[in-house]
Design a protein around this nucleic acid. Sequence first.
RNA 1: CGGGGUGUAGCACAGCUUGGUAGUGCGCCUGUUUUGGGAACAGGAGGUCGUCAGUUCGAAUCUGGCCACCCCGACCA
Length: 507
Amino acid sequence: MAKGPKNAIQPSREENFPEWYQQVVRAADLAENSEVRGCMVIKPWGYGLWENIQKQLDKWFKDTGHKNAYFPLLIPVSYLEKEATHVEGFATECAVVTHHRLELKDGKMVPSGELTEPYVIRPTSETIIGAAFARWVQSYRDLPLLINQWANVMRWEMRPRLFLRTAEFLWQEGHTAHETAEEAMVETARMHEVYERFLTDHLAVPVIAGEKTEAERFPGALNTFTVEAMVQDRKAIQAGTSHFLGQNFSKAANIEFEGRDGREFAWTTSWGVSTRLIGTLLMAHSDDDGLVLPPRVAPTQVVIVPVTPKPEHEEPVFEACDTLARDLRSKSFHGESITVEVDRRDLGGGTKAWEWIKKGVPVRIEIGPRDLEKGTVAMTRRDRGPKEKEFVPNADVVTGIVATLQSIQDNLLARALQFREEHTVEIESMDEFRKFFTPENADKPEIHGGFALVHWAGGVEDEEALQKELKVTVRCIPKDAELRGSSGTCIYTGKPAEGRVIFAKSY
RNA sequence: CGGGGUGUAGCACAGCUUGGUAGUGCGCCUGUUUUGGGAACAGGAGGUCGUCAGUUCGAAUCUGGCCACCCCGACCA
């Protein structure tokens, strides 16, 4: 019997993290590159993850008073022009629609029927939603207006990577309008917290919540709040953002209403997360055997693999599998019935087992003839080694499954948190700072760095200089008082600084 | 947009220097034996060699144009 390699994914994370990432995406059958550069085909296993993310977040959006709606894919260029900073921020990555028909010329279809005004395919929808809000809001009694949209957007990226940065991606964008600045700020903070809670409790990804500096702010926003995660190459990834837009967009789009004391402009917010969450999830938890999924978002939480050495075993073993599947499905985990799949495909047991390992299914159960005799099953957890098989009495599987799933969920979070803490340091000098962010091997940089908590009082130019020198940026000004720490001296400018910020390399 | 590289079966690649009619591994199909951790054997299907032109009796192989993709940089919520 030929043995496969020790680990399912080559190269390992240590050897080549970006390549490992791509191999995990492929091995787990999440998505593939399409014939259109920068666009991806999201396959059922990847889309199942997105559906779970959607389902759970959507519930929270509704719980906090929002309603879903849908706005057009095409946005008149003149709309983008209305907000100066905004157009500047997105101009370089817009796909532009200029024609509305094709004509056959020399056997080729060529665009014809030029539009009088070109459209951009939405890179985000502040402007077109703003125009709708302007129509909908007449009086302070129409406020607050709390809208969310699930949609695709397009940003023409130079260097695409599946889930992390693609030209087209799926996301959710919330857009709200309020009577006062205070209400809008409360909304911004509330959704920021929703994201923080979702990443922590559902994706088991610990995040640092905080505010962006001017250099990293959303084009057109007064304040941008972010949740930043650390993934296993110790880089930061922005997992969700919530923006306080002030009156910038309401003035641009004329969201004006009859207030309690005369005409006023509304205060707006916007907030979003995207399919990037899937890339974040992957890089936070997966190992050298492939994807590792937190039970709360796994498309299938338990897989049952029948082991049938002889044809005559099939009937009783399949029956036992189906019975167990039914019993497990009758249990509920966080209010949803447990998702179970029985893999009856006619393939070698080992092959099937490894497929599910690579897909990251939290719990794998094998049932064979010997188990039928003893009334047990063989159980493995994806957060442990692939050979750590436990033989569990049948009845205990059913009674214990909820606790097992929760234990995996908790373990993943604890593990990720520990990883982040191990690679978060307070730094007091530029020498130390440079050393922290400089790989020892310049030709083939090893995994290095992490989160650096430093006192900072620099401006946009100072951040740009550091980005140029070390490829690091301020990820956020942490909300958490403990991380923020006490006042001190800016590590770069020497000016007094109110507290610490987080520097890191980022996606 | 600059610098480098690669296009050969579903995937990964060899063959090219020295032109002679298409190969290997994985995957796929059929059969037999297998099956408690990535099975073995036998047989089989699958390719206008990125594209257009040139050289030649003959081009995957040599020459030129074009196209696509990848890496590095620039850019990037």
